[in-house]
Design a protein around this nucleic acid. Structure first.
Length: 572
DNA sequence: GCCGTTTTCGGCCCGACTGTTTTCAGTCG
């Protein structure tokens, strides 16, 4: 059983326990455990197999470790089944409706026999809900509205879709008169791969005026709410953005609060509470004196707690607070550290621009080199290169390198790893290239053992340098393959091969927790934009976001090395 | 249910909003 499934069971159990009005801290323990398991860099099943003690994981104690093992061994959990049997089927669906918590769900289920949004909608229309104790017409109508908006709004939005839109808006807001601060918060700022609603925070001399101009932006399709300091809008096709205007002198603590993550903040507060400090979005209160101290910047906020500044990308309660206490937060990699791009297509295969155009674009953004990695012929659809065309391309690259000064084009290929693990280009040709990138583009449904062996086989090939998008997922479109990432990391470390962080927002593959884990296993990583046009080379920052969430420093990324060192790394 | 430079027992983040009520319960982020 996969971690995500185990986490799902505990999440569900937390909901059910809440309906049962169990001890709130027990419920939180389940919920916390679910979150931790979800983000675990390693499959629990593998840990159990290797005899590791699940209780070593912070937040997992005796009971949950035992239950996890039961799920892994039998695929079932007795305690969970018993719990489910106590309630009408589907009751937890009600909890997904905003405005319905455990108390309301329980009452709806027991008093009106409701267990779905559809049934609730009908009951509201029939006037049954408004008659319940402590409910009224207004509450009922609000629930109805929530059900309807819930139907319209689908899940979380990929960061690649949200970020440009939000940046555009922030850019405009910053030009407004009297605006001092304006920045995004929440999961967008932490650079999670998908985001829910967008939070924007700002300060200005005249906050209300900024709010007025915000809701009047041409992008705005609908204004959900508007007050003197806060407004909520919808931007087509499906983005909800909230703007909060706050006091300048407490901007730091507010930004910190709204950036989260929730777990990071809870951890921080618990720690400080023991020292007699009460943390809130308004600042820090000394419990002894009752004095509230405000903070204009996050740096000052963390500083007051004796903590080093913690970059938003790693505020996930993964040990960053402890490191900040000792001033040991690593210097995370930054876009300015990047000297080259390892995955670039041209019109030789399915790209739009010429090698020279891609090279000049790369030079313009400050890179020192790029690796041209057009597809091999296995990708029939992508006009893949055969041996002869690849040799001609190598010639053209050599010629171009004479013309473009202070820049180096490295010859490469994105060679197909066939279903059986063999490569789509003879070794002799691969030997003539500067860098060989290999990737799976077919037979995504292979079973774990088969797909894992397929990739490791490629890693063992002495001509292969980098494995691109190792799990082949497309966010919201295609699930990752069943590949055993741990085994791949192990092989990559053993053979000193590099794994790609593919920066295309729909891929982000390796993803954050894989990046974290691979780096810990000693695997060298490389960001590739997979650019098919000159503009797509700008996607590098999405790869940087993933790398930072994986706690990467410059020495963990091949992109931070000069070209000679890159070639030396591969012994070419 | 988890956890421990106060603790193996007794704690567990903090505040705001809404709608229903005459002081607060429930939900949210």
């Amino acid at each position: 059983m996969k971690n995500s499934e185990i986490a799902g069971v505990f999440q569900d159990m937390a909901d059910l326990l809440e309906l049962k009005e169990e001890n709130i801290f027990k419920i939180r323990a389940y919920r916390r455990a679910a979150q931790i398991i979800e983000r675990l860099p390693k499959e629990m099943s593998a840990m159990v197999e290797q005899g590791e003690d699940l209780q070593k994981i912070a937040g997992i104690g005796e009971a949950i470790a035992k239950k996890s093992a039961e799920l892994i061994y039998s695929g079932k959990l007795e305690a969970y089944e018993n719990l489910k049997a106590e309630f009408p089927e589907g009751i937890t669906n009600l909890l997904e409706i905003p405005g319905i918590g455990p108390k309301t769900a329980h009452r709806l289920a027991t008093e009106l026999m409701i267990s779905s949004a559809e049934q609730l909608e009908q009951a509201i229309r029939e006037g049954k809900v408004a008659h319940l104790f402590r409910m009224g017409d207004k509450t009922a109508q609000n629930l109805l509205r929530q059900i309807q908006t819930m139907r319209r709004k689908d899940q979380r939005i990929p960061i690649g879709e949200a970020l440009p839109v939000v940046e555009d808006i922030i850019h405009i807001l910053r030009t407004f008169h009297g605006v001092k601060n304006m920045t995004s918060a929440g999961s967008l700022r932490r650079f999670r791969e998908t985001v829910g609603d967008i939070d924007i925070m700002g300060t200005a001399d005249d906050p209300e005026m900024v709010i007025n101009e915000f809701v009047a932006l041409p992008q705005v399709k609908e204004v959900l709410a508007k007050g003197p300091t806060k407004a909520s809008i919808i931007i087509p096709p499906r983005l909800q953005a909230d703007l909060r205007m706050v006091d300048h002198d407490s901007f730091g603590s507010l930004l910190q609060y709204f950036t989260g993550s929730t777990q990071h903040n809870i951890s921080l507060r618990t720690k400080e509470q023991k020292k007699g400090l009460k943390l809130s979005e308004y600042g820090i209160t000394d419990a002894a004196t009752g004095m509230l101290e405000k903070f204009a910047t996050e740096e000052a906020f963390y500083g007051r707690l004796g903590l080093q500044y913690i970059p938003p990308e790693i505020r996930e309660d993964q040990g960053e607070i402890e490191l900040a206490e000792g001033n040991d937060i690593p210097r995370l990699v930054d876009i300015t550290d990047i000297r080259g791009d390892f995955h670039v297509h041209t019109h030789w295969s399915d790209g739009t621009h010429s090698i020279e155009e891609m090279a000049r674009a790369a030079k313009a953004v400050g890179y020192h080199y790029i690796v041209i990695t057009d597809h091999s012929r296995g990708r029939g659809i992508a006009r893949g290169l055969n041996e002869e065309r690849l040799r001609r391309q190598i010639q053209e690259i050599r010629a171009l390198n004479q013309q473009i000064e202070g820049f180096r084009i490295l010859s490469g290929i994105e060679v197909d790893i066939r279903a059986d693990g063999s490569l789509d280009m003879p070794d002799a040709v691969l030997a003539d290239l500067d860098i060989v990138v290999a990737a799976v583009h077919s037979s995504f449904n292979q079973a774990e053992e088969r797909i894992t062996r397929r990739i490791i086989h490629a890693i063992e090939n002495p001509h292969i340098d980098i494995v691109a998008h190792p799990t082949c997922r497309l966010i919201g479109e295609r699930e990752p393959t069943a590949v055993n990432t741990e085994a791949v990391f192990h092989a990559a470390a053993k053979y000193k091969k590099v794994l790609e962080i593919n920066a295309m927002p729909v891929r982000l593959d390796l993803k954050d927790i894989h990046t974290y884990r691979a780096r810990e296993q000693g695997v060298m990583l490389a960001i590739g934009t997979d650019a098919h046009t000159v503009n797509q080379m700008q996607l590098m920052r999405f790869g940087i976001g993933v790398a930072r969430r994986g706690w990467c420093q410059p020495q963990h990324l091949l992109n931070c090395l000069p070209a000679e060192k890159v070639l030396a790394f591969f012994k070419r």
